[in-house]
Design a protein around this nucleic acid. Structure first.
Lengths: 236, 236
DNA sequence: GTCTATAGGCGGATAGAC
DNA sequence: GTCTATCCGCCTATAGAC
């Protein structure tokens, strides 16, 4: 009885995975807006109504794909950061940023799903906020570690932003100097913007493909400086 | 005869405009991927086949919308830059950046069309490259003007990027110091990224809505510094 | 859990009359 | 330029048998 239950559960997990895999393939071909349960079923040799036993609606399938994408990106960035443990903070930042870019280039459609234009008509449920934070948290952790000693020099914040920066710090970056938190939030958006431009093709005819690694490294490093990280060569 | 021809042409222009207007409304409701000639026709009280006299295919309609969006954004930014003529370069940069953000927030779906995820299955024809350059050219012009005198201090470029920076300069930013061109391209992507994060909702629960103007100004100004623009108060 | 069948839609594109 | 008619395809979702 237990083994039967186990077998059934295993089967369910396998079918669920197959559905998501096929859905990801369709994402690449047609985009999230046109993701269709029927087409997935057809490709899998099932009948569309059978899928409803696994995902109660198209949107739930989409949610699962979004959560998976955040987790996949998060894992990639976490690994890169862990591999660079002990390295100077700026090196570690660069490793994390490079890992995110590499993941984005390797999974452009899943990247678009989480950092591109919102899917029209889709309302992200609460389930996505945890996974969404995972990637950003790696960058926060890298910076937090660099700031355990005396705070690093960062130009003082304009008076009008101080209260907001303190609130943000309290909310999701406890322990950082508020000026660093404020810088980080903007820099994070800019880092994703840099990656998006490349993934979405806006560097075509602008930045030569063979130079893009270097180009990205240059700018990602500049962004590290903006959040107050000292250079790889320990700056006195 | 001439008046008849004139009347016909006028009618054609009006209908074409009505089609694009309705298409823009649909863009907002359903997204570019689901833009449908049939639905546009239905809403306009026409029959779908009639639209083919104005746009030979769905993709041509989409192209028209993209070109219009680039032009609309370009005009907004150009106006802001012209209004700030004579102001210190950094003020002018900020005016242009702020205008782009305001346009984006006022036209989120058209913004997504040009700076968001690519529309699956749609191949941008050559017609879009001219209008696409229009917005970026305003920023190039602002910087060019600031650099007519002696070049501004910007940290030297890593050796590996020098050749690429010189090529870019030659291609679309003639007259700028190569280090500035290289900075500008990355900064431009980052500026758009900053705007995208806000427009696409990634600042929800992160940056308080009432603080976003200030937050953007802070970071846009930081970006101006990164391309070598001197501050609003003329720095000796 | 999977199937068939069904309801009640939607789409792009073309031909040929007026 | 606009119409009707048509081809041929697509979709979400549910009911009810097995």
């Amino acid at each position: 009885m237990n083994t039967v239950r186990g077998a059934r559960e295993r089967a369910r997990i396998e079918v669920t995975a197959a559905i998501k895999d096929e859905a990801r393939r369709q994402l690449a071909a047609e985009g999230a807006a046109k993701l269709s349960l029927r087409a997935v079923a057809r490709q899998l040799g099932m009948v569309s109504s059978a899928l409803y036993r696994y995902f109660p609606s198209r949107d739930e399938l989409l949610t699962a794909l979004i959560v998976d994408a955040y987790d996949s990106a998060g894992a990639a960035v976490e690994t890169a950061s862990a591999d660079a443990a002990g390295a100077p903070p700026r090196t570690r930042w660069l490793a994390a940023a490079t890992a995110l870019r590499a993941w984005a280039l390797a999974h452009p459609h899943e990247y678009a799903l989480i950092y591109g234009s919102p899917v029209p008509g889709y309302r992200a449920p609460q389930d996505t906020v945890g996974p969404a934070a995972r990637v950003a948290d790696v960058f926060i952790a890298v910076i937090r570690e660099a700031h355990t000693g005396p705070g690093l020099a960062l130009p003082p914040l304009p008076a009008g932003l101080r209260a907001e920066a303190e609130r943000m710090t309290e909310d999701f970056a406890r322990g950082l100097p508020p000026a660093v938190t404020a810088a980080l939030v903007g820099v994070w958006a800019q880092l994703v913007g840099l990656i998006s431009f490349e993934v979405f093709g806006h560097f075509q005819n602008v930045v030569t493909e063979s130079e893009r690694d270097r180009f990205f490294a240059h700018h990602a490093d500049r962004l590290a400086r903006e959040v107050g990280l000292p250079g790889p060569a320990p700056a006195a």
